[in-house]
């Protein structure tokens, strides 16, 4: 197992290398010039060129790439073109809100979706099943921003129970922190919940049709025991896989949710940096997101060995 983990960790190096190359060159291929944005409406072409030169954007692209990679190898993600602050500082400032949003979403989604999926499978083709599946289809079909606006309208605008926007750090108290996370977590979590509930149901239905479940039922075991101890554990591998795949969904969802709910996290930072063509920030963020995704995949793969004793590395 240890050698497997080490091999997988070593394999992340070329993956990250490929990501770095793609991110850097795709950004340079995209239209847009931060110097023109900085210079503004009244600037002449000469002034824009002078700013570009000062920022080093007139150097050959390969030279810029080399400098960036060299910096990255030394742990330096570069400096924001606009704010002049280190990218690592900007990312560090934004980690807490995104982490809080992602974890609370994950928690809410998993805690609600798995029971819903199990319930739907247990009551297959009955009203409960149909209702759960209706929720799943709707949850998956509705865009996150729409869910967000509806939640804001109902719980903030009309009822006034929860804030419209913003984020309070945990250091300002659990109460304010939780209040600001309820609506974004729900908005982001509904899609995720729908995905997990559907897979849980499908996986459970497959397991429930197997002989050992029929045996367990015929032995007179309680339904709950059969479902949770015998069936769910054996249905877990696809569910965990989907939770892992869903992390990518979560990352893209965070970008939209953070915009709608004005949460100053990594998603907002990405959108703003892309619109402003702040290359060092976008590059740093994509590397971070890719790293997270690779690590999550590794953790999911490792978890298989614990869930299914037949799997060995």
């Amino acid at each position: 197992m240890v050698s497997y983990i080490l091999r997988r960790l070593l394999a992340t190096i070329p993956v990250m290398g490929v990501v770095a190359v793609f991110v850097f060159f795709l950004l340079r291929l995209a239209p847009g010039d931060p110097a023109a944005i900085i210079a503004g409406d009244d600037a002449t072409v000469t002034q824009i060129a002078a700013i570009r030169a000062k920022l080093g954007l007139d150097r050959p692209v390969l030279e810029q790439f080399g400098l960036w990679v060299l910096g990255m190898l030394q742990g330096d993600f570069g400096t924001s073109i606009f704010s002049n602050l280190p990218v690592s500082r900007l990312i560090a400032q934004r980690v807490e809100p995104t982490l809080a949003l992602a974890l609370s979403t994950l928690l809410v989604a998993v805690a609600l979706a798995i029971p819903l999926g199990v319930l739907a499978a247990a009551k297959a083709r009955r009203l409960t099943d149909r209702l759960v599946m209706l929720f799943a289809v709707m949850g998956f079909a509705m865009p996150v921003f729409l869910i967000g606006y509806v939640l804001i309208y109902v719980f903030a605008d009309r009822l006034g129970w929860l804030p419209v926007q913003g984020y309070k750090p945990l250091s300002e108290g659990i109460g304010p922190w939780a209040r600001h996370l309820v609506l974004p977590s729900l908005a982001l979590g509904i899609t995720y919940m729908a995905l997990i509930a559907r897979i849980t149901r499908a996986s459970m239905l497959e397991v429930l049709s197997q002989d050992y479940i029929r045996t367990a039922n015929s032995k007179g075991l309680a339904t709950g025991r059969v479902l949770l101890l015998h069936a769910l554990k054996n249905a877990a591998v696809p569910i965990v896989t989907v939770i892992g795949i869903g992390i990518a969904l979560l990352i893209s969802g965070v970008v939209i949710t953070e915009t709608v709910f004005n949460i100053p996290g990594l998603g907002r930072l990405t959108v703003d940096a892309v619109l402003k063509r702040d290359y060092p920030i976008v590059q740093g963020l994509i590397i971070v997101f890719a790293g997270v995704k690779v690590l999550v995949n590794l953790m999911i793969d490792i978890s298989y060995a614990f869930l299914d004793p037949r799997i060995r590395y």
Binding site: I152, D157, V164, Q165, G166, N262, D272
Partner: peptide, 18 residues
């Protein structure tokens, strides 16, 4: 100076007094 990029959210925040 709070930056709210979404105009709908900013309007709601003003109405709600945030």
């Amino acid at each position: 100076m709070v930056w709210i990029s979404d105009p709908q959210t900013a309007m709601s925040a003003l109405i709600n007094g945030e």
